[in-house]
Design a protein around this nucleic acid. Structure first.
Lengths: 146, 146
DNA sequence: ATTTATGCAAATCGTTTGCAAACCT
DNA sequence: AGGTTTGCAAACGATTTGCATAAAT
């Protein structure tokens, strides 16, 4: 739960793929630890030493390793956030339809459980092997409404 | 609820934007009536007379008019489906992580209502003016598992 | 005749990739 | 040295757009 353990976890996941935890990769994870889902430009703004292509390449690798999750809402840029497994919080997204900002939110435990059960039933009925689910709520954020 | 009424509805929504219901636009709506969410290539496959650029342009217009909804899950192609307002069914998406196919599904009424209430509370707490919500369930479809 | 829609081809832009230099160990 | 990572610049590909022609009213 503390920051160092996140890095250890990342390091282990990368090792599992035969990859090492380089300075650039660590820089990316460090930025993501302190922020919500970020676009690539937002990420580069916070770490000017990162080259665009390397950032893309490392984000893809980190996503492969299950460290980072890529989320695509509308057009423009994709956003990247630390995977739930690392943060330990299953969450959903509040997306501003105007500016695209994404905020992480959690459902009350009982609602989440009920939802999970329903989804499992529905997926099975449709012949799907269940994976993760994403709930995106679209609206207008306070800033865009001001 | 019958097919002709869908066309009337579309026509009205386009008129509301000062636009007319042309043959190409009708062709697109006709295809979408009989299918799940389609990508542009899939749409063109079903109507060879449609030019790619016109299809994109008309889909954008139809989306503007609230007739069509554009859904983006991963990379590759966006998918388009008739808006819920037209079909009258609030639904969610079962997405195959392997082939990208999307199937529409509905939650049991009580679960949907409980979820709606929770989301409203969460959005308000975060300063968001609530809009629509999308629930995407990812898994592997029967075909890809075969 | 004027306005709007169409379709081709070219432009756009986020993302990916080739390749040579820089970095490990 | 041998293998990996980096960063620049070029390539890619889905979508958008400019412009001249074809409908439609």
């Amino acid at each position: 739960m503390t920051v160092p353990s996140v890095h250890d976890d990342v390091s282990a996941r990368l090792a599992h793929l035969g990859q090492s935890y380089t300075a650039n990769r660590r820089a990316i994870v460090d930025v993501l630890i302190g922020a919500g889902p970020l676009t690539l430009p937002e990420l580069l703004d916070r770490r000017h030493e990162l080259a665009q292509s390397s950032a893309y390449r490392n984000l893809a690798l980190l996503a492969d390793a299950g460290v980072v999750r890529k989320i695509i809402h509308d057009s423009d840029h994709a956003r990247y956030e630390l995977d739930e497994d690392l943060t330990g919080h299953h969450h959903h997204h509040l997306v501003c339809s105007n500016c695209g900002t994404v905020v992480d939110v959690e459902l009350p435990g009982d609602v989440e459980r009920l939802l999970d059960r329903s989804l499992a039933a529905i997926a099975t009925a449709a012949g799907f092997a269940l994976g993760r689910h994403d709930l995106d709520v679209h609206g207008t954020c306070a800033t865009c409404r001001a």
